[in-house]
Design a protein around this nucleic acid. Sequence first.
DNA 1: CAGTGGATGCTCT
DNA 2: GAGCATCCACTGT
Length: 189
Amino acid sequence: MSLLELVERPVLEAAPALLGWTLLVDGVGGTIVEVEAYAPDDPASHSYRGETPRNRAMFGPPGRLYVYHSYGIHWCANVVCGPAGVGAAVLLRALEPTHGLEKMCERRRLSDARLLCAGPGRLTQALGLTGDHDGAQLDLPPFRLYPPAGTVEIDATPRVGITKASALPWRYVVRGSRWASRGPRRASP
DNA sequence: CAGTGGATGCTCT
DNA sequence: GAGCATCCACTGT
């Protein structure tokens, strides 16, 4: 299945299916190991109260990025998913770094690979993603996406850092991954 | 290791 | 003016 076919599916199906894909930005990145789904009629979603200038990309075509500025400091990146036009998206929370480690260490001013992409703010910093990428299409340069090599085992847990609808198990993690961010009910090392 | 609090600025009410 | 899909440094065991 192509990326575009995948993300056109309803977000609760698309989100776990994104695990195991390898995301590169200008050749730098890694394998997606942790995501969160933000669904239609989801009080925790930025789209919950309708379209605004900030969340406009969420209501556009699936397969694009929705990037927003968080806590005045960090960028967070989402993949817009289906059904089209309803404001559904998947927050990218962690990657296993595989390509361009040196570049990512330089951007993060960090040598510990474990923490390069373990968290939504860290991930965007390592990949060089900013508001300039809001609305960008993931099937065009500088992006490259490669499907998983094999079967991916997945754990579903509550989402991190939200106050509304915090019990819904819409955070998906590759089982046993040491590259996921810390968070509720993280799989034991 | 766990828990706490500050940084920092945009978005929407 | 309040709230925020975070990160890091620092504290105390």
